[in-house]
Nucleic acid binder design. Sequence first.
DNA 1: AACCAGGTTATGC
DNA 2: GCATAACATGGT
Length: 296
Amino acid sequence: MLIPITLPRTFSFKECLWFLDRGLDDLMHKVIIDHIYKACQFGNQIIYLNISANDSELLIQCNSNQIEVQKVIQYVERWFDLRRDLKPFYTLLSDDEDFAPLATNYRSLHLIGIPDLFEALCWCIIGQQINLNFAYRIKRRLVELYGQSVEGAPCELYLFPTPEKLSEVSLEQLKALQLTTRKAEYLKGLAEAFISGIITEKEFLKLDEEQAKERLLLQRGIGPWTAHYATMKALGGMDCWPIGDSGINRALLQLKRLDAKTKHAATRAVFEKFKGWQSYLCYYLWRTQREPSDQA
DNA sequence: AACCAGGTTATGC
DNA sequence: GCATAACATGGT
């Protein structure tokens, strides 16, 4: 089944391809010659999407005919933040001399999310305080071992392990992936929280983003950085900026030549001006840190 | 070889 | 409340 979506004028599929194909393969999606493949689950049906684009449309090929078209469209719209009008953001960027180039360099780059709260939170815990390549390696092993692979796809595609699955995995097995003891415990605890319904994606999607962050913070293993990151990537929060994030710090040091001493206050001051678009500022700052030449 | 990685919790003052 | 240590391993 082919589902075409008319694209907003300001949407760059090219930026999507670039972002999703940075050499940081976690088996959750694949980019092959301008096509994005991704596994996803609707009800108990597991399918994969093959997404490409022409000048005016996003083309979603779906390997099942018995799928609700609206669900697929909503999923993709959420993943790519497709319906966002970025004009106000570009106005804000242009008002700042140092940031103005971002609006032109990454024109029509929409915030690509992680359309699964459990995955997003696990990913944060895995990635806490280690370098990205290492973090991806751990995630990939986790997915390979405990995620469900999708049949019939033209490439290796997995669903992220379910909370139920991870709760059955022993601490030792998790530690064998080179997670610290504590991170292994956090993951188990998080899985339990999802199973018992303390955290559910459905409920958290309805929350105001500040409430969502507040409630995420109650969970062991989730600190401010993770609460912001996951709210941004999985819940569509627009004012998330993981405070103290090393990527943001690096980007701001470069762009604004911040004094390392007053960094924190200066960062706060910068973000103050972007209320309503703080997530996007953060995302674009990260984008500056991943130029093609930086790729691993 | 020290120091930093897309941090968080536990502990001590 | 705030500073500091511990966590475990990889990259530079």
